[in-house]
Design a binder for these strands. Structure first.
Length: 324
DNA sequence: AAATAACTCAACCGCAGTAAA
DNA sequence: ATTTACTGCGGTTGAGTTATT
């Protein structure tokens, strides 16, 4: 974490401070009782540095009242609160955190707290919950940055089962909820359907169904329980629907693409110029394949949540969790 | 075990405001 | 009133460290 030593044209040293230089600076200030003029300090103290460099070294590192070590949870909360009121006024914020420098707080904000807020679905600039388009734009990134491909969705179920939910899991739930809220809200404005709910269901189901296994075709659902698992009423081999976890694990990438596609199709997201050519092609591909295919092979009624067949129970459960 | 990517944070840069000449 | 010197602040950099592939 040190820069290679270099010299300005003036001959003054730059870069990392040596223990000897530190000691000279400490000795001088302790002897004088204060730093006095930073401009003249280096010459008198015998340092080949500019005054600015000395001031920075003292205020950010050598000052005896500087607190070292990890930020506590209380400090984190205080920084977030103060930042929501003051913005990037690091020196002001640092006055409320004894022993912490503005530089240290700024670094901690940029490397830790910003990410933390983003994960919680909170915009680090406005400190408001992000239900905006940025969420959608960043969704693929969020998915891929998850520790495993289904971890974004898993907490949904864990939470309803009353299992412990840590901050990150909670954040992911909020992100997912916010995403769907945006999608459904926007879809209700669509003129393509006279029934906003039906259209919302269509969007949501279409989103998921592009990767769904084929619908089971039990002719008589009351008898289905007597059939051996994996067998239809006609004796055909039927694929058992995978759990939502398996689905999410296998299709997280496709889900994110679908979200992107629907956000674009609803004019919620302007066609982005900073997405890659591959991503653009993905959107086109999705438009031409899974989405249209699903639309054509399922009637609108069949796509309504309430009308899902019992054989789709695992999907219904999954959708219930996110479609509150 | 090696290569690569991501992260961390001390230090630097440049601008703005203020005081002194 | 203008110029110069100085200080403080926020943004950015980049070498070292750690994690991941």
């Amino acid at each position: 974490m040190v820069r290679s030593p270099s010299r300005e044209e003036t001959g003054l040293k730059k870069g990392p401070w040596t223990p000897e230089e530190d000691q000279k600076l400490i000795d001088y200030i302790q002897k004088q009782g204060s730093h006095g003029s930073w401009r003249h300090l280096p010459r008198i103290a015998g340092l080949n540095r500019c005054g600015k460099s000395c001031r920075l070294r003292w205020t950010n590192y050598l000052r005896p009242d500087i607190k070292r070590g990890k930020f506590s949870e209380e400090e984190e909360k205080l920084i977030i609160n103060l930042h929501s009121m003051l913005g990037n006024k690091w020196s002001l914020i640092s006055t409320k955190l004894p022993g912490r420098t503005d530089n240290e707080i700024k670094n901690y904000w940029n490397t830790h707290l910003k990410k933390k807020l983003l994960l919680m679905g909170i915009d680090p600039v406005t400190h408001r919950r992000r239900t905006d388009l940025e969420l959608l734009a960043n969704f693929p990134k969020l998915l891929s940055s998850s520790s495993n491909s289904c971890s974004l969705i898993n907490p949904l179920m864990e939470n309803t089962l009353g299992l412990p939910t840590d901050t990150v899991q909670l954040a992911r739930i909020q992100i997912m909820q916010a995403l769907l809220q945006v999608l459904l809200k926007a879809s209700s404005f669509s003129s393509s359907s006279s029934n906003p709910n039906a259209y919302s269901n269509l969007v949501l189901n279409n989103l998921l169904s592009s990767s769904l296994p084929p619908l089971q075709t039990f002719s008589d659902s009351s008898n289905s329980s007597s059939l051996p698992p994996g067998t239809s009423a006609f004796g055909e081999s039927v694929q058992t629907p995978p759990s939502y976890q398996d689905f999410a694990a296998q299709n997280s990438e496709n889900i994110s693409k679908q979200l992107l596609f629907y956000s674009n199709s609803n004019n919620m997201l302007e066609p982005s110029e900073n997405i890659s050519v591959d991503q653009k092609q993905d959107q086109i591909d999705l438009n031409e394949t899974s989405a249209t295919k699903s639309m054509s092979t399922r009637s609108l009624d069949a796509l309504n949540l309430s009308d899902l067949d019992d054989s789709d129970l695992s999907w219904k459960d999954f959708l219930d969790q996110i479609y509150w």
